[in-house]
Amino acid sequence: MVGALLVDSPIKLLEKLKYEVSQKSSSNSFPELNAVRDAYHLREWIWHHYLEGQVVMQQQMMGIEGNQQDWEYFINNQFPKFQILKELCNGSKHFILRKKGQIVRALESGWDNQEWDTLPWDADGFYVELSDSSVLSISELLEAICDFWDQLFKDHALI
């Protein structure tokens, strides 16, 4: 696989993701937006680099021989908030916000946000409100998916 700017393997993309997660800022969403895309695309990179056509590795990781759809199902079951990550990633590609899925709106704390003062949390950063009215920290979501990918790599000796 030919990568961009020396990011040419899932391991390198995981390193980039860890770096981006470490660069979080309460006033600049760019590192988190980059991390969202990398965290989401690791799913595809791992499939093509390690699992596609590799029955033994598929069985070792997923517990079954399967295809890319089985891999996606496995990831969604192992990390249930992956669908939120997918919505954020897809939303980063489109100018017009589509009103379907779990995300109702994105929120930014601080910076004289009038609405922020009425919400039930007290930390600067970026959040999404979900259809069940809960609020999810993007930083916490990214830290969790980074830990998930890191553990998957370690559990299967991919690092």
Rank of each mutant, 00 (worst) to 15 (best):
A144V: 01
E143Y: 03
N76L: 02
A144P: 01
W111G: 02
E87D: 14
K81G: 05
V104W: 07
Y127G: 07
Q102T: 10
N90H: 15
D150C: 06
W71N: 01
V128Y: 05
L152P: 01
Q69A: 14
W116K: 05
H94A: 14
E72M: 10
Q114I: 12
L130S: 05
I75P: 00
D112H: 08
S109H: 06
K86Q: 14
L141C: 01
I103L: 10
S109M: 12
Y73F: 09
Y73L: 11
F95W: 15
D117Q: 12
T118D: 08
F79I: 00
F79Y: 15
F148P: 03
A106I: 12
W121V: 13
Y73V: 09
V128P: 04
F126Y: 12
P80D: 05
Q102M: 12
E72Q: 14
I75Y: 00
D132M: 05
G91V: 04
M62S: 10
K81F: 09
Q69D: 11
E140N: 14
G101A: 12
C89W: 07
D147R: 08
R105S: 06
Q83M: 12
L97I: 14
W71K: 02
G91E: 06
N76V: 00
V135I: 15
E115Y: 08
I145T: 14
V128L: 09
I138M: 09
Q68R: 13
S133C: 06
V104T: 15
E108T: 11
I138F: 03
E140G: 02
D112Q: 11
W121R: 10
W116A: 12
C89G: 03
N76G: 03
L141E: 01
L141P: 00
S137A: 04
E140D: 15
D147S: 13
E108Y: 03
E115D: 13
K93I: 13
A106T: 13
I145D: 03
L141G: 00
D147Y: 04
E143L: 06
I84F: 06
D70I: 02
S109E: 10
A106R: 09
Q114D: 12
K86R: 15
A144G: 07
K81Y: 07
G101M: 11
E72Y: 05
I84Q: 09
R98G: 06
F148L: 05
N67H: 10
T118F: 07
Q102V: 04
F95P: 02
N77C: 06
Q68Y: 08
A123F: 08
F148Y: 15
E143R: 13
H94F: 11
G63S: 06
N77T: 02
S134N: 11
Q83Y: 08
P120R: 10
L130C: 13
L88C: 09
F74K: 05
Q114W: 10
D70R: 06
V135Q: 03
Q78S: 12
I138A: 00
Q114N: 11
Q114L: 14
I138W: 02
E87I: 12
F148I: 04
I96M: 12
A106L: 14
W116R: 07
D147E: 13
H94I: 09
F126E: 01
Q68D: 07
L88P: 01
